[in-house]
């Protein structure tokens, strides 16, 4: 089965695309695979050597676990471990009022492929004479196991909607907004304020989610396009949006293959 994918927005960590033709069940399968089945590294065990900060070891451990770590797909296997260390001391005694902050970027990994995806996440503020020295094991696991291993953030989809002209608006009609979110398929290009052609995909942000801005003085009819879904994918930085979608599709495929092999008569 071949699917047609058209990108509406395409960034490193964020993407929006229309995929068709697919059933709602398959679209939801991809969404769920992105959330639960794509493995990412996350700190799971922390050995505290010294923690004289104002937070308990467990609190620090929780914060470290939530820091996203880059996970190159295909390089590691489920359950692999990478060790990271962090050693930050507060300022010297002379500058007693000062604070030194330990950031996620201070984490040093023993494998150069795994590093904090965001470097400015404050872990803990340290005053003079305080020190945080830890060793941590990051493990490759899936979102099903713990949300910290989830590569996707706010991943979702909605139907693609087609906008069609339904005649002129009454001169004395109320000036109500006509809000639509996501992506529309152009079906009334002659009435749009910008140049457009039939079948164009338009993100609703371009007209402030209000159809009245794009088609002034026209009545419009919105219909769901059968078997077409607009996906919005955002990642926490451990993978790029492209990698996340590919990995999710790959995991669905391997499940399918596994099932086909298991039920062969």
């Amino acid at each position: 089965m071949e699917y047609e994918v058209q990108f509406v927005e395409h960034g490193d960590r964020e993407a929006r695309f229309v995929a068709r033709p697919m059933t709602p069940a398959f679209a939801n399968g991809i969404r769920r695979a992105m959330l639960a089945d794509v493995p990412t590294f996350s700190i799971d065990t922390v050995r505290v050597i010294e923690n004289s900060s104002v937070m308990f070891d467990e609190q620090i451990g929780l914060r470290l676990g939530l820091v996203p770590l880059t996970t190159p797909p295909g390089e590691f296997e489920h359950g692999d471990e990478v060790t990271l260390s962090l050693d930050v001391s507060g300022p010297d005694r002379e500058a007693a009022a000062e604070t030194r902050t330990a950031y996620s970027g201070d984490l040093v990994a023993n494998d150069p492929m795994v590093e904090p995806a965001d470097e400015n996440v404050p872990v803990i503020d340290l005053k003079s004479d305080q020190r945080l020295q830890i060793e941590a094991d990051a493990v490759l696991d899936v979102g099903q196991e713990h949300a910290k291993h989830q590569g996707g953030v706010a991943v979702g989809y909605r139907h693609l909607q087609r906008v069609e002209d339904a005649g002129p608006r009454g001169e004395f009609d109320d000036d109500e907004t006509r809000i639509v979110r996501g992506v529309i398929e152009e079906g009334a290009p002659e009435h749009a304020v910008t140049d457009a052609s039939d079948g164009d995909l338009v993100a609703t942000e371009t007209f402030d989610n209000n159809l009245r801005n794009r088609y002034p003085d026209r009545e419009l009819e919105l219909t769901d396009v059968e078997e077409a879904f607009v996906f919005h994918v955002e990642t926490d930085g451990s993978l790029s949006a492209d990698q996340l979608v590919e990995e999710a599709a790959g995991s669905l495929r391997s499940r399918g293959v596994e099932l086909a092999e298991a039920v062969q008569l």
Binding site: M55, P122, A154
Partner: peptide, 20 residues
């Protein structure tokens, strides 16, 4: 105490932007 690393609801990393 310290700024949360992630958004409680959606899991987006918000701690990254706190200092700025």
């Amino acid at each position: 105490m310290m700024v949360p690393v992630r958004c409680f609801t959606c899991g987006n990393v918000v701690g990254e932007h706190w200092e700025e």
